[in-house]
Nucleic acid binder design. Sequence first.
DNA 1: CTAGACATCAAACAATTGTTTGGTTTATAG
DNA 2: CTATAAACCAAACAATTGTTTGATGTCTAG
Lengths: 210, 210
Amino acid sequence: MVEQLHPKRLEILKLLARRTGTAGRAPSIREVAEAVDLRSSQTVHYHLNKLEVAGYLERLNDKPRTPRLTAKGWEAISGFPLLGRIAAGRGLEAVAVGDEAYSLAAELLSSRSGRGRYLLRVVGQSMIGAHIDDGDLLVVEEDEDPPDGAVVVALLRNGEEVTVKRLYREYGLLRLRLENGDHEDLVAPAEDVVIQGRVVYVIHPPRRRR
Amino acid sequence: MVEQLHPKRLEILKLLARRTGTAGRAPSIREVAEAVDLRSSQTVHYHLNKLEVAGYLERLNDKPRTPRLTAKGWEAISGFPLLGRIAAGRGLEAVAVGDEAYSLAAELLSSRSGRGRYLLRVVGQSMIGAHIDDGDLLVVEEDEDPPDGAVVVALLRNGEEVTVKRLYREYGLLRLRLENGDHEDLVAPAEDVVIQGRVVYVIHPPRRRR
DNA sequence: CTAGACATCAAACAATTGTTTGGTTTATAG
DNA sequence: CTATAAACCAAACAATTGTTTGATGTCTAG
């Protein structure tokens, strides 16, 4: 069921993809009209509605400059090049190029829960035991009360030390365990540890063999 | 030279920090006024100008809803305690928020060499031995002739199979080795293997213990 | 005490912008 | 040929929004 997308709509979709990052503001309807060579803002309005009901994009209420491509929208524009067909179902799935820079950032840095996310870069090899090495990036979601078993960023000793460990709760105590498990755990009363957030992604170069 | 920031301005700055992410739109001046308990939009306008000339934020021209915290702005509100200063030199380095969605994507998806990069999502657990699991994302840089020891995406059997392995060259043959090394290597004449590219990043949730 | 800077307010203005209305053109199904 | 739907246009409307104007209270330096 490959829906045939009107060329003008595809053009609009691509434009929005390019201009809907966190960087600039999304274009207004009139700006879109100009960019895709349509003389009436209404025509864009018309296409935008079509695109929205077809599930290619969403808008916040009907507020200015708030189009956002849906997954379907991203798929429609990315043509799925190179490895797409070849890899499908064989252990790898292509996730497109170019425009995807935006959606990658969106996927990594925006949470459905509305909680903020931020990045931490690992300095030094103090967490090598947890398979987290110098230079790796951690995507952390703010969460002061993450579920048991989550990998958390915790402040110890009045904030003098920061660690990344897996969290367990026991009888009013917090147990912080290095991810690979074979070190002695750190156990402390809950009031001595401030949980900053939860690690949701680890980004690193391909691992050297161990 | 720690500049003393007016409490109202600090409040505004914090509000903007929270609402200037990838998620919603930044608040309008009147929305800010309401949120920080000021009755006149002009007062916010006034503070915003102060903040801008002082270098805490920038606005796109003077367009609606386009405040962006500068580095100085982020510093001012985080007191930079939390993860910033504390973490410095202690295992973690804060890498800002918000704006960074952009630069994150840029860092991951643009190569200095000018070669294209794309994403692959791993389907299934066929590469579990290489510490690459179902759902992980691979950032791949196009490179038909990567250096020895690189982790590459290779097509085997006329493109019928795709694998991710570490590449070695030996006497006109290619040796593809699973990253963890303890499986038998795949050795094939160079003409039977098409190297698609080189894995530059692996993105995955924090690893469960093994 | 007084002048001036600062913070605040209310009201009005003008630009931007999504939307509505009503119409035209064009291709196609009946 | 005709009716219909899709694509498009121009113009006007109303809401949102940054900005301007003019004024008031408060604190502090001189």
